[in-house]
């Protein structure tokens, strides 16, 4: 379970304080598929990055599986990120100097201190239907293929949580649909998914929708805005 307790993140922008996340308290149960929607700059990305231990909150706490993650030391936080959470970002996030299969194996080396299994990585690439590109470099892949590899990489350590920040950002509708099916399938296997999206169509695939507005979260918001988010 992911639990945020009165969590706040304040940025200073142009000399003024901006409450990207403003006193948010929420729970995401194990195995849930939650979509976070909202206007551009409403704080969706910041919220997810705080949940994943990538951005330290200014106040409040975040509990993952009962552990206050921001109370962990650097090593503990790194272990949590490698073993319990898989990230999918809103931009191509593969390491350009590694082949696809090596990109997928990389998180396993952080989790277990040794190079990840080639067979397991290949199996995941088959799952996301890009196994034929295993030995290709990211620059040789289309945007959709890169996203699929990134999803395979997020799954390599068999995390209990996937945090996806606009994972279909600039993809065509067919690829978008394929990736959403992939998320649905993964969620069906018990993995908790929190997905940030500006699209209510995609959000409708989730079991639960959270709407963010000026750093605050409300349940089952309508989120009528379909404009691209700036990912604040």
């Amino acid at each position: 379970m992911i639990e945020l307790r009165d969590t706040t993140k304040v940025y200073v922008s142009g000399g003024e304080k901006v409450h990207a996340v403003d006193g948010v308290t929420l729970k995401v149960d194990d195995g849930e598929f939650v979509a976070v929607v909202g206007h551009s700059g409403s704080g969706k990305t910041t919220l997810v990055s705080i949940m994943g231990g990538l951005t330290r909150p200014s106040a409040g706490s975040v509990h993952v599986g009962g552990t206050d993650i921001w109370g962990l030391d650097n090593r503990g936080l790194a272990r949590l990120r490698s073993e319990q959470i898989g990230f999918c970002f809103q931009f191509p996030s593969l390491i350009s100097t590694l082949t696809c299969i090596d990109n997928v194996r990389l998180p396993a080396s952080f989790a277990r201190g040794e190079t990840g299994s080639t067979e397991h990585a290949l199996e995941l690439l088959k799952t996301v239907e890009v196994s034929e590109k295993a030995n290709a470099y990211p620059s040789e892949l289309s945007g959709g293929q890169q996203r699929r590899v990134a999803i395979a990489r997020a799954l390599v350590n068999e995390p209990s949580i996937i945090l996806a920040d606009e994972p279909t950002g600039d993809l065509d509708e067919d690829t978008e649909e394929d990736i959403m099916e992939l998320f649905t399938r993964v969620n069906g296997e018990g993995v908790t998914i929190v997905m940030v999206t500006h699209s209510h169509k995609l959000a409708s695939r989730a079991a639960r929708i959270l709407t963010m507005d000026n750093g605050s979260v409300s349940e089952n918001g309508s989120g009528a805005d379909d404009s691209p988010g700036d990912g604040r």
Partner: peptide, 16 residues
């Protein structure tokens, strides 16, 4: 910076 941030997101420690 992005690559270093991604490595941390994947579980790399600061010492790594």
């Amino acid at each position: 910076r992005r690559e270093l941030g991604l490595l941390q997101a994947m579980g790399a420690t600061r010492s790594f």
